[in-house]
Design a protein around this nucleic acid. Structure first.
Length: 330
DNA sequence: TCGACCCCGAGGTGAATGTC
DNA sequence: GACATTCACCTCGGGGTCGA
């Protein structure tokens, strides 16, 4: 069941909100086993927008809160821990509220969490945007609530391509929603500035995401399996499991995936993992072995082997090269 | 169009070695 | 001692083919 609502505009004229000052509260609902990358992308977008505002002598525009049913320490699916506020201690204010709901392997368990469901029901009427990330929509469905996307994302405005907005029949990506909100609040130039500073694909060796590019000839089943592969880059993934997502036999899945996407599922997964490891090499100081394990690439040795094959370098050389020439990353 | 079977090679795993 | 890289061996993914 697809539960989707759209407001006329994600603008200040919303009937839901009567702000007393220019602050937007961005609540992100988490649970054990949530998928970290997309949550991190949202946080980064609003943080960059605040930082840009600060450089213009403006007050912080966005207040991002990480929330969970009980509060405290929450583990992502990649075993990275974050500290959260309890939903019960988090009060609704008369500021503008946006709600993002994480996806990830922990969703089925979170769907059975009455405390989280009840809070979603209480918070839903006060949130201008209610945007589930991937499997996060199952949490909304479990609470019998509709999604509430930013309607402007469905319009044919000139910046749709810039945010990689999907077809009209699909929900916008969480990144597109966050960027659109920044554009609404702070203007197109700021949104572009933020998009350019956070866009991982522009820095990475490959941009191969089918789910973002919306390749027209790709069937929904194959698209779903490709998305599933992208969302599970940090997990041990078998082709058989991916075939089950597409509701096909393993052999047929391999054949269809390659003919529609142009590469094998394992190649697709490998590229996604390499992109993630490249990003972590540049943005963190974690040792190569830990990065490899967190990206689903067994060991540092395996990562070195892949870097030698695909990039003709080693992970440490790649990291040093990116640090030595930051201008090339722009 | 899809499933089943078989074979080959690429990739994963863990140990060994090198470097700092 | 920690981390990075190489190497050897084994597993499994992908291609070819055929039949339903």
């Amino acid at each position: 069941m697809e539960l989707v609502q759209t407001l006329p505009r994600c603008s200040r004229q919303s009937a839901v909100r009567t702000p007393t000052r220019e602050l937007t509260r961005v609540d992100i609902a988490l649970f054990n086993g949530f998928a970290l990358p997309k949550v991190a992308a949202i946080i980064e977008i609003f943080q960059k927008a605040n930082a840009f505002g600060a450089s213009q002598q403006l007050h912080p525009r966005y207040d991002v809160s990480l929330l969970s049913a009980a509060g405290g320490r929450i583990a992502s699916s990649s075993s990275v821990f974050v500290w959260t506020e309890s939903v019960d201690s988090h009060q609704v204010t008369d500021d503008r509220h946006l709600l993002f709901i994480a996806g990830g392997a922990g969703v089925p368990h979170a769907c059975r969490d009455e405390r989280l469901s009840n809070w979603l029901r209480r918070r839903h009427p006060f949130s201008e945007i209610v945007h589930p990330i991937a499997e996060g929509r199952l949490l909304l469905e479990a609470a019998k609530l509709p999604s509430r996307y930013c309607a402007l994302l469905y319009g044919d405005n000139e910046t749709s391509d810039y945010y990689q907005v999907r077809a009209l029949s699909e929900a916008p990506t969480e990144v597109a929603t966050a960027l659109r909100i920044v554009e609404e609040d702070m203007g197109l130039e700021v949104a572009r500035h933020v998009a350019e500073s956070v866009a991982p694909q522009q820095d990475m060796p490959w941009d191969m995401s089918v789910s973002r590019s919306g390749t027209p000839k790709v069937s929904e089943k194959i698209m779903a399996s490709a998305r599933w592969l992208e969302e599970n880059v940090d997990q041990p993934v078998s082709i058989d499991a991916a075939a089950k997502v597409a509701a096909m036999s393993e052999r047929n899945f391999l054949r269809r995936f390659k003919s529609e996407i142009g590469m094998t599922p394992s190649d697709y997964l490998l590229r996604a993992r390499l992109n993630m490891s490249c990003r972590m090499l540049v943005e963190s100081r974690l040792p190569v072995d830990k990065i490899a394990r967190r990206c689903g690439i067994g060991s540092g040795g395996q990562l070195a082997k892949l870097f030698r094959k695909y990039l003709a370098t080693t992970p440490t050389d790649y990291r040093m090269g990116r640090e030595a020439s930051p201008a090339e990353q722009a």
